[in-house]
């Protein structure tokens, strides 16, 4: 498996009218299996946009994302389905990581239905993610608004892990959390990486977080990405 970005550029407002403003251009990097690539830079420089492009939620104006050597834009359906399973994304705000109208249980079972897992297997999977994330079983019956940010962020990670991904794009996973919870989440992410060999693309504005987590890292500034030594 490999996930590679080549010469990505992105413009905003490049519609019929107006020439559009360039956010970043010619960004290339590759995510190594089991490693973390940190991406930092000031806010408004398009870090999150880059993350969304890598995970296929948005398309670049120029350049391409390659998954197993195939460009995302020209993928066959079966390939795209594997891509959708193997590349996941985690977002900044834990309070809207789950549908507020559904119980947590429901949100998790929804994913299991997607994977066509049912019966006893379903209960086993659910128990397993609770164990990995270190949460009590009672959270399953709660609504998202009844849980704390840290718990929700753990559950969000747990839900992603159900899909058995190879790559996770972490978009500011801890910047909405308190310091002690941030530390817990970062350790959880590290443990999961060590156990399951997932590679991360960690997007953060906090240099300390990047340095703590990453094996290699880049800084997005003025539309360019520079690789920096960790």
């Amino acid at each position: 498996m490999s996930l590679k970005a080549e010469n990505l550029s992105r413009k905003y407002g490049s519609g019929l009218l107006g020439r559009g403003k360039c956010i970043f251009r010619d960004v290339s990097f590759e995510l190594e299996p089991g490693k973390t690539f940190g991406l930092m830079g000031p806010s408004g420089e398009g870090k999150s946009t880059l993350g969304r492009i890598i995970s296929g939620l948005e398309s670049p104006t120029d350049g391409a994302v390659f998954f197993n050597g195939n460009p995302l834009s020209r993928m066959k359906k079966a390939e795209y389905t594997t891509f959708r399973r193997k590349v996941q994304m985690m977002f900044q705000d834990p309070t809207d990581a789950f549908n507020p109208r559904k119980r947590i249980k429901h949100s998790i079972f929804e994913v299991l239905n997607l994977l066509e897992i049912s019966g006893t297997e379903r209960i086993r999977c659910t128990k397993e993610i609770l164990k990995t994330t270190g949460l009590p079983e009672e959270v399953l019956l709660r609504y998202p608004s009844q849980l704390s940010g840290g718990q929700l962020q753990r559950l969000a990670l747990g839900r992603i892990l159900l899909l058995d991904p190879e790559y996770i794009v972490l978009d500011e996973p801890t910047s909405a959390l308190d310091v002690s919870v941030q530390a817990q989440i970062l350790h959880l992410l590290k443990n999961v990486q060590a156990e399951q060999g997932i590679s991360y693309l960690l997007i953060s504005h906090d240099e300390a977080v990047i340095r703590f987590m990453s094996d290699s890292c880049g800084e997005l500034e003025n539309g360019q990405m520079d690789l920096i030594e960790v």
Binding site: S148, S180, Q182, A183, H187, F212
Partner: peptide, 19 residues
């Protein structure tokens, strides 16, 4: 102490459990 240890400069040592 736990709060300070979870700061970046002290290596993100978390406090176990939650509030």
């Amino acid at each position: 102490q736990g709060l300070l240890n979870s700061l970046p400069e002290r290596g993100f040592v978390p406090i176990p459990g939650s509030s």
